[in-house]
């Protein structure tokens, strides 16, 4: 059975940015209904990846596709099906909140005015406020409302929770789950907050040094991955072990390995002294990105 065609895809994207390779042959596809959490260290290229995907940056090599067509050739119906929260949502700063939302409401056929009203009330945002005078967190809330209101098929959020308080973050996560569950919205969001990721993501992608180092179903990942402390007394093979993701030598000469659980338990016999630990997402991030 063939899988459905991806809603968005990057094909071997390479991009240099200020004499630095921001993306190095990145390929990624977003299947409909997927909620993909994109993680990576600061400067790993998450925003560049997102901007390439949306056609805001033209990659040096490779191609970005949205809704089955090149990301630079979207028509109005494609744009109406897309919601985007940029990392620094400072556009239209001269407007009042209500005027900005009024302008946007004119342009989206499926604008959900009730959702806007509900979120404005819940986040205590007065439509008469100047956008210029809002705090960074409030600006982010406004950008989220502006992105959610069109009920998009594809929602892309670039570190949306960075400036939000815990309550607003939970609210945002709830809206994402609702969008994905009720409307089948596909979501891509970058974040540093692992608890958010665990709460809503169906998949996780780790971007490290311009490459996708890991792309996996989150539940499977949490079940399968293990950290193995390989004893100092036993020589570690120089070749990667079956299912190995990462290895790092510790100060005492022993090794820290990240392995898939199946591989660690059955396909390869670990030394008796080896200690096997389960791995949380944050630990995984540290092991893979350090």
């Amino acid at each position: 059975m063939s899988s459905p065609s991806p809603l968005a895809a990057l094909h071997a994207i390479t991009m240099d940015h200020q004499e630095h390779r921001a993306l190095d042959g990145v390929s990624l596809s977003l299947q409909p209904g997927m909620v993909l959490g994109l993680v990576g260290r600061n400067g790993a290229g998450k925003s560049t990846l997102i901007e390439c995907l949306l056609g805001l940056r033209i990659p040096d090599q490779g191609q970005a596709m949205l809704f089955g067509k090149p990301a630079t050739q979207l028509d109005d119906s494609d744009k109406a099906a897309l919601g985007y929260v940029p990392q620094n949502p400072e556009a239209l700063a001269w407007m009042k909140l209500g005027s900005m939302l009024g302008l946007m409401a004119e342009l989206y056929p499926s604008w959900d005015a009730a959702l806007v009203e509900r979120l404005l009330q819940r986040w205590e945002l007065n439509p008469k406020l100047d956008l210029l005078k809002l705090s960074p967190g409030q600006r982010q809330q406004v950008a989220i409302i502006r992105a959610l209101a069109p009920r998009p098929r594809l929602l892309v959020l670039d570190e949306p929770a960075a400036a939000l308080d815990p309550l607003a973050r939970r609210e945002l996560m709830r809206e994402i789950v609702e969008l994905a569950g009720e409307y089948g919205t596909t979501v891509l969001f970058s974040t540093h907050i692992m608890s958010d990721l665990e709460r809503v993501a169906s998949h996780i992608a780790l971007l490290h040094q311009g490459r996708i180092q890991l792309l996996a179903n989150l539940d499977e990942l949490k079940d399968d991955l293990r950290r193995v402390v390989w004893p100092q007394q036993v020589t570690l093979p120089s070749e990667p072990l079956p299912g190995e993701f990462a290895r790092k030598q510790l100060a005492d000469g022993s090794w820290n390995l990240v392995l898939r659980h199946d591989a660690a338990s059955s396909a390869f016999k670990l030394p008796e002294q080896a200690r096997v630990h389960s791995l949380g997402l944050e630990d995984l991030f540290v092991e893979l990105a350090a």
Binding site: E90, A91, K96, L97, G98, G102, E106
Partner: peptide, 25 residues
């Protein structure tokens, strides 16, 4: 970033955008 835009005050347009679902631009 960018510049101020001269807009009608929200008061005059709020009921409109809060109640209608879509209107031709």
């Amino acid at each position: 970033d960018s510049y101020p835009r001269l807009e009608k005050l929200l008061d005059s347009c709020a009921p409109d955008w809060l109640t209608r679902s879509f209107q031709a631009p």
